[in-house]
Amino acid sequence: MKQISYKLLLAAISLAAILSGQASAETKVLVGTDASNPPFASVGTDGALQGFDIDLVNAICAAEKLTCEIQNIPWDGIFAALDSGKTQVVAAGLNITPERLKKYAMPGPYLSSPFAYIAPASSTLDGTKEGLSGKTIGTVAASAMEKYLNANMAGTINVSTYDSWDAAVLDLDSGRTDAVFGELIALQVAYIKAKPGVYKIVGEPISDPTYSGQGKGLAIPKDDKTLSAAFDKGLATVIADGTHAQLTKKWFGAEMPAK
């Protein structure tokens, strides 16, 4: 019995050690991103985070002299992490939407982001509402794109939702869907540029202020006013000094406006 209580004590001590491991970093700003979404965020072969969002956040933090730590958090749990205080800022290529603005301060926009359809290079789709009638379109669940489709295309198309763009494009490859509806920039870089000749953008990019028109922003809980003010100011600085333009060129192949 003595042995068992000794082991219990040991377990309790090591548990406390694990628990308190993160408690010391009080002055750090924790920024969450999902590193499976290039070019906004991904990992290098050494496991280090890289991407437009990563560089931008680092530039903003440098401009505001903040010590920032970027965390790799799965997309499914990223807002839960923000709401529960596990992370303080979300920088994950988020679109600014009225719905999100109700809960969060969203410094930005830092990139305009129209939506677009991609389809296999051989597809005959033209991207018009009539042309898409009866087709199955893949997109990521709970994204602004899904909401746009539900609001504007309900009854015309069938929407198939996935937990990631890769999953959506996998089903496009297998022929289960006819097109994937996503953000022009992400689709352009991740699929069209990465695998030349396999996919193409069909139709014209779509801008809708309700869903996409407000561009990309960061998300910070509304009650953390100091932090959102700092990020507002920092973003303005990096846009003004040309850092932002430089980063868009690095990650998207061309300079892109913030608005």
Binding site: D34, A35, S36, N37, P38, S42, V43, G47, N72, P74, S164, W165, D166, A167, V169, L170, A190, Y191, A194, K195
Partner: peptide, 12 residues
């Protein structure tokens, strides 16, 4: 990590 790599490489 596999999921992150899948997203990064587009080779799920």
């Amino acid at each position: 990590r596999a999921k992150v790599v899948a997203g990064t490489t587009k080779e799920p």
